[in-house]
């Protein structure tokens, strides 16, 4: 189960955990604290531009963010970020975003973030800045492999478990969005809901 509340200290430790094991032990997460910014975004509002800059890594402290892409002229939901998840900006890079991916705020969010390319960060923590630049570009791609694996192994089982684990999120999505997220018809969704929740 996910933790209900993420604090800035969790974010600092999480950032250090993104580093390669050979580098983790070289850096103390306490040094990151002066560079952490927290931002809240209301439901349905757009993500602030500052959070979409190159060098920004965010962690969701609370709330829910969904990601939609355009595929065959239809907006499709592929995944959700929940408290504790990292958001990497390659996903929504302005000029490299072929699938027109966008982040939708489903439930008011609190985000912790740093910009490892900010001059002050680079000056004070040059090695961390370099290691984060190397890791975060690769992690954005690696994250998607996880979403693919979840659906590929056993889609039905995954969808049923997801329905059981996310009662609050189900209430925030229309049936059409939920069917779209699972990649099934609305009638198949009814069967999934009945089988997993008995409704």
């Amino acid at each position: 189960m996910r933790r209900a509340l993420i604090e800035s200290d969790d974010f600092c430790k999480g950032i250090i955990n993104l580093l390669h094991p050979e580098d983790k032990s070289r850096f103390d997460h306490q040094y990151l604290k002066p560079f952490i910014i927290s931002t809240s975004v209301k439901c349905k509002d757009k993500m602030p531009e500052a959070l979409l800059k190159r060098g920004v890594v965010c962690m969701l402290g609370s709330g829910v963010v969904g990601v939609k892409h355009v595929f065959e002229e239809v907006k499709c939901l592929t995944h959700f970020y929940q408290p504790g998840d990292f958001l990497f900006n390659t996903e929504v890079h302005k000029t490299l975003n072929i699938q027109e991916s966008e982040r939708i705020i489903y439930d008011e969010v609190k985000l912790f973030w740093i910009n490892y390319l900010d001059p002050a960060f680079k000056r004070n923590l040059p090695e961390v800045s370099i290691e984060l630049e190397i890791q975060s570009s690769l992690l954005s791609t690696y994250q998607y492999q996880g979403y693919i694996n979840k659906f590929g192994i056993d889609r039905q089982r995954y969808c049923e478990q997801w329905l059981r684990d996310n009662p609050k999120l189900i209430g925030m999505l229309s049936r059409k969005e939920l069917a779209n997220y699972f990649g099934v018809s609305t009638s198949s969704l009814q069967v999934l809901i009945k089988d997993s929740l008995g409704k």
């Binding site: 892409h69 595929f71 065959e72 499709c76 592929t78 791609t141 998607y144 979403y147």
Partner: peptide, 16 residues
Amino acid sequence: AHFLQLRKLRLLKMKH
């Protein structure tokens, strides 16, 4: 971003 758009496409094809 090049590899990411390939992954996105695979996920989208898989689902839709």
